[in-house]
Nucleic acid binder design. Structure first.
Lengths: 122, 122
DNA sequence: TTTGATCTACTACAAATGTAGAAGAAAATG
DNA sequence: CATTTTCTTCTACATTTGTAGTAGATCAAA
């Protein structure tokens, strides 16, 4: 399942709150982007076509729900990034995290904790 | 600078070896993908158009070189992934790394080292 | 120098993506 | 009920991406 940038936006909104109407989706993402109502509708329809979202109606209004799990979708996106874009390299990523995203000391410690924790588990 | 998947493939090849001719690029990525010669040419031309790659000729043959830095390009890709796709979430990424990419104990230790090292520096 | 191999430049064309307008149906409001 | 608001479905259209084919130029080998 490959999603476009705009589709991610919609999916992220739906993962936060669902079922949701097109109107609700728009409201949730307004401020981040300014799309016409029908633009959002079009993307929702396309997502339904891709099988990423379900649609059911109450009266004449459609309610949408994600059909794919956020976690899986994100993993796919990561895999894609690493395989296709990064050619498998991991280390530059860590530096990126630290340099560009300016993760806090706290977050850094959290990451270390996660890494160590898994070390124990396995 | 936004690159498509195929363009990443070409760029990664050019970062490994440059300047390079279209023929050399093809040879380097053959095995991973099977594109017609003219397909690679088209993409190189498009990359030149985007300003990601330079082209200069010797005789009638073009030699290509990356104009953008690999590190910066990768950072952009990360930023894009996090901002657009992940909505800023970091933690799921670590779990992804561990679960899906099955990074080795060694790599894990390396990541921890990097994270700690930066901790000292700043 | 003829001929085959190789390059380039140009053109093509379908699918995906971004972005929405128009028209008609349904719901809400006065 | 008449009018306004809101939804839906269709249609549209430019750009980007994937993926080459063709024809003409050039280089290399016999």
């Amino acid at each position: 399942m490959k999603l476009s940038e705009n589709e991610w936006k919609i999916m992220n909104s739906l993962w936060k709150k669902n079922p949701a109407t097109a109107r609700e989706v728009i409201e949730q993402i307004s401020g981040e982007v300014e799309w016409a109502y029908t633009t959002v509708k079009t993307m929702l329809t396309r997502l339904v076509g891709k099988g990423a979202v379900s649609e059911h109606k109450k009266g004449n209004t459609s309610f949408y729900e994600p059909l794919i799990e956020q976690e899986k979708a994100h993993k796919n996106a990561f895999t894609n990034l690493f395989d296709k874009v990064m050619d498998g390299a991991l280390e530059p990523f860590m530096h990126y995290l630290i340099d560009e995203k300016k993760i806090s000391k706290k977050e850094r410690e959290e990451l270390i904790r996660i890494l160590k924790e898994e070390d124990q588990e396995k």
